[in-house]
Design a protein around this nucleic acid. Structure first.
Lengths: 153, 153
DNA sequence: TCATTTTGGTTGCAACATAAAACTGTTCTG
DNA sequence: CAGAACAGTTTTATGTTGCAACCAAAATGA
């Protein structure tokens, strides 16, 4: 078996999610789902992805519980794809990725869209990592700990 | 051309970053780099990835300016791979992905590692999205805006 | 010092994944 | 009810991945 390696049983909780969304299309599908797209054709048109690939990706996202199929609202026989709660949990990943993209991937002088608060129309704040007591943390200020070495949570 | 499609010239600032890190291994390499790994062999041992794949991924991360090669500290001829500022910017993506993983990918009763603040040893706060004025925002409270439609920033 | 091991890759091959297009069976639309 | 649109599946060519073998330079050690 020379299959592509799966991270599904990895110990690391960064690796395992990548098994669900770690390819070139899945996160874009989720992004489109946040934008309200629900139907196969909408995703296909938005992404320009081949239909067999889209089909496989949607199926994978559904089996991972990120999307779920719901019957068409008009009583039709077709179904639509909507985010589950787990799928909506990816919001922060998308925001983080987008802020990184805004910072490092926007061409000079290039007009680009960015995230704003709908109510005020003004850009949202950058993501920050905080300690339990509110201190702002930098990358070097964190580490990984085993749950069993911690008495409290 | 039947190559794998590239998102490099996509308008969307979520798509373009995926061109740099949207595969199964790149983010894990970056994670290991945050953990202090610097050498080819260290990454290879940590990830268990084939050497040709690792080689290609490291090269890709270097060309995207996420890692850079520095001469070995002991004066040897070999070099090491360290995160650039752009690479360190991925911290928030990793935190977001990890928190999502902690929430939805940890098996029942399974011991897992999680992120703590080094100083206190206590778990870090969950990521939150805030408006400029501090209001907490939910996924539906944001939208994308074109820079040119905004007078201010 | 010179042989051995480790390191950091590259190359070749077989299995697998992706992309494009053609095809099929349903569902809207006029 | 005929034609177009929709939601996929199948086919086929090409790319990518993973493993193993190979190789040269650097570190190790007897």
């Amino acid at each position: 078996m020379v299959k592509r390696t799966s991270h599904q049983s990895a110990d690391c909780l960064i690796a395992r999610p990548l098994d669900a969304i770690g390819d070139w299309w899945s996160l874009l599908i989720v992004r489109d789902a946040f934008d309200g797209l629900r139907r196969f054709g909408e995703f296909q048109k938005s992404l320009g992805v081949a239909k067999n690939i889209l089909s496989a990706r949607l199926r994978n996202l559904v089996t991972h519980g990120i999307l779920e199929t719901v019957p068409a609202p008009n009583g039709g026989a077709h179904h639509e794809y909507v985010l589950t709660q787990k799928g909506r949990g990816l919001f922060y990943v998308l925001v983080a990725l987008r802020q990184w993209g805004e910072t490092y991937f926007s061409g000079p002088g290039e007009p680009y869209t960015f995230m704003v608060d709908t109510e005020s129309g003004r850009p949202i704040k950058r993501l920050e990592v905080h300690a339990e007591d509110g201190r702002l943390l930098a990358p070097g200020d964190t580490r990984l700990a085993d749950f069993r070495n911690q008495e409290n949570r």
